[in-house]
Design a protein around this nucleic acid. Structure first.
Lengths: 254, 254
DNA sequence: GAGTGGTCTAGACCACAGT
DNA sequence: CTGTGGTCTAGACCACTCG
């Protein structure tokens, strides 16, 4: 008996190396895809499914949990488990770490540190970082390029606590969270970002080597530590002709 | 004894209405936040935790599953469960259904159907929809406004199967998935989108009542059914001065 | 071989829905 | 009331990792 054989559809192979809950989840997904269970219809009770396949109810629940995670069904206490309507309108756009993003295209990202200095926070920065006026902060101006082509221009601020020297570490991973880790005295655990559509101004155009008013994504990022205290803020200008966000939502294709 | 009392931190109240796994998850999160368990450190084995709190190992696993979901720990078979490093760089931008998005701002969205007609697919559309040349498609041109201000201009195509009349239904929910549901003969279950930064051309400027070269988000959407067949394609132009995407990632603040 | 997480069982009690 | 999903237990066996 080949323990790795694909289970027959609709049957569970208890000897398989594939977990039972996974096999059952697959069976249920197939039944939903095929239309045997239609949106808003009730699945059989967990106990019935357990009986039908000769498995424990806890295992059935584990399988159904997979479907719930996938957004294919929802459970209602006291009444049953129902097939969901596919929700395709709540969109989620993913954007990877820029360095990785660039590497994945087979390019070598290169970061140039245009400027680093200690600044005292003005009104605007104090508000963004939620610190008193004139707080000492580290300021970074960075340019990320690939194949000599400038791609992203970044301005970042972190509250200056640790007096670590400015090292190559910043260039290997110039993400705000890494800069905060190195220079602020706390562990950043949460990050909020806002993404805007804009066009380059004079300074940005010149640094990114593009024409004035070129479309760009502007991403503003705020970093927080375990006490919800702000530890960093940054603004990235990404060339719109070199980046796009993508999104893939809905029920999983197998 | 008040069964709803908050559990003492570090202790589990088995009589509480709050599930044990949830209480334990909270205790473990607190220990990670407080630094008692630091990134890359190993949590106590599940059996030890179970023993320490006098609960079942399965319940401990349920609690740890919560932490794994939250991205706070990761499990390695055969060796242990470890505290993760907060990952703040893989960004996820959320964008709600436009209608909801607008309603949430307290505005009343209004959709105007600028044009509907049956078209035969040309080279370009055939490629996007993965159908033969000259396939009959329904074409929609829509303008979504709020408070008389135009916000989004959309061009959408769905393969024309059902001969449903064009009704008010399209205007209540002019999302591509709804249009496909009404007019293509299949249930869309998956949606891919690409988001680009761009500026308005002459036509878009005039329809959106903005100046030429105003920053906009362009969202291209492709819809698929259970057989992975393409059932619709659309392009939305969203005024960049009225929309922004936001993102909030990392460990949850309680 | 000892320790670990992954899976699974066969029960149990509960709160909640609908009747 | 009955039927449902939500939680929990006290075991069990496995495959994996590491010394």
């Amino acid at each position: 008996m080949d323990k790795n054989k694909k289970h027959e559809s609709g049957k569970i192979d208890k000897e398989s190396v594939i977990p039972i809950y996974y096999q059952l989840a697959k069976i249920l997904k197939d039944k939903i895809f095929s239309g045997e269970f239609k949106p808003e219809e009730k699945l059989p009770p967990e106990n019935n499914i357990a009986g039908e396949y000769g498995i424990s109810r806890m295992t059935v629940r584990r399988a159904i949990a997979e479907l719930i995670d996938a957004g294919m069904v929802y459970a209602e206490k006291g009444s049953g488990t129902f097939v969901a309507r596919p929700c395709l309108e709540n969109v989620v756009f993913e954007l990877k770490n820029f360095q990785e993003e660039i590497r994945e295209r087979g390019l070598k990202p290169r970061t140039r540190l245009l400027e680093v200095k200690i600044v005292k926070s003005n009104q605007d920065l104090s508000e963004r970082l939620q610190v008193p006026l004139n707080t000492r902060c580290l300021f970074f101006r960075l340019l990320i390029s690939a194949e000599r082509e400038p791609l992203i221009y970044e301005n970042k601020y972190v509250v200056y606590k640790k007096q670590n020297p400015i090292l190559e570490k910043e260039l290997k991973d110039p993400s705000l969270s890494n800069l905060a880790l190195l220079h602020a005295d706390s562990m950043p655990i949460r990050s909020k970002r806002v993404l805007l559509a804009s066009v380059t101004d004079k300074e940005e155009s010149s640094i990114l080597s593009v024409k004035l008013n070129t479309p760009v994504f502007v991403i503003e990022q705020t970093l927080y530590d375990t006490d919800k205290k702000t530890v960093g803020w940054g603004k990235s200008i990404c060339r719109g002709d070199r980046f796009k966000l993508s999104s893939d939502v809905g029920w999983p294709f197998d």
